[in-house]
Amino acid sequence: MKKIYLAGLLLILILTNSCSIYNFTGTGKIDAKTFQVGFFQNNAELIEPGIDRRFTLELQDLIQNQTNLNLVKTGADLSYEGEIIDYRISPMTATADQRASQNRLTIRINVRFANRKKETDDFEKTFSFYYDYPAEQQLTGATLNFALKDIFERITQDIFNESLAKW
């Protein structure tokens, strides 16, 4: 009976200790308590109004939803800043009469990440993703919103993985 009690106690200790090492987002142990996301200005040649603010807010939301970090305006342990460097629409596939049948929206974002607690994690890197849509559709309204949602979900998750999850 004593061995079963000790085995159960040991199992509980292992489970509680291992939960602090790993969580479901893959972030593991983070020494940081705060983060800040600077405004990602749109410096692309082709300007789509409002995407800079939308991207900034989506990155903040992702980090808040997947970590216990607190968002602050200044003096954060983790800092994200950068700019949108490319917003490009290009034809992808053509029909027999040399017209585009599909277009691609590509967005590239340059990110500078700084970790005040562990400076070896700092990086500057470009992240990009694309969305293909039929050429007969205009990139406005619902099509644009869906494209931005798809692209920003992928880019923000890639930034999160690179800076915190280390995948």
Score class of each variant (00 low, 15 high):
F55G: 00
L13P: 00
R116T: 12
L78A: 02
K2V: 12
E48K: 05
L78D: 11
M92D: 10
K125A: 02
K117S: 09
Q102I: 08
R104T: 14
N43D: 13
T143I: 15
P91L: 06
E81P: 00
I21E: 12
K166C: 00
E81G: 00
D122A: 02
T106S: 12
D158A: 11
V72N: 00
F146W: 13
L57I: 10
Q64H: 01
R108G: 09
K117Q: 12
P134V: 11
N145W: 05
L46V: 13
I4Y: 12
F123V: 11
Q137Y: 15
N110V: 03
C19E: 06
N145M: 05
Y131I: 10
F113D: 10
S18M: 10
F152I: 08
N17P: 00
F146Y: 15
L62V: 03
T120Y: 07
L46C: 01
A7H: 06
E153C: 01
D132R: 06
S101L: 10
K73Y: 02
L78H: 04
K3I: 13
K166H: 15
L46D: 07
G8N: 15
F113C: 03
D97W: 04
A165M: 03
T156V: 06
G38R: 04
I4H: 10
A142Q: 14
I107H: 04
D77P: 00
A135N: 11
K73E: 12
Y131E: 11
I89Y: 03
I84T: 02
K29A: 09
F123Y: 14
K118C: 00
C19T: 08
N70K: 11
N145P: 00
Q66H: 05
I47H: 06
I107L: 05
A7F: 12
T25H: 11
G8T: 14
L164D: 03
I47M: 08
N42E: 08
L71Y: 10
A100V: 08
E153F: 13
F39S: 08
F160R: 04
G26S: 05
L13C: 09
R88I: 03
E81I: 01
A94E: 13
E48M: 04
L144M: 12
N42Y: 02
L11T: 09
A165T: 08
E83T: 09
T56M: 02
L59W: 02
C19M: 07
G8L: 15
T34P: 01
A7L: 12
L11S: 12
D122C: 00
K73W: 02
A7S: 12
T25F: 05
A96V: 09
F35N: 06
S128W: 14
L164V: 02
A142G: 02
K125V: 03
N70R: 10
K2Q: 15
N42H: 05
P134Q: 13
E58I: 05
Q137D: 14
Q60D: 09
E119V: 11
L59D: 04
Y87V: 05
N103F: 15
L10F: 10
L13I: 14
E81V: 01
L164N: 03
I4T: 14
Q137I: 05
A96E: 12
I14R: 04
A7Y: 09
Y87A: 01
Q137H: 13
N103Y: 15
K73V: 06
W167R: 13
F113N: 03
L105I: 06
N42Q: 07
F160T: 05
I151T: 08
E162L: 02
T95L: 07
I12G: 01
M1D: 15
E136W: 14
L10Y: 07
N17V: 10
S128D: 14
G75M: 07
G75C: 03
Q98W: 08
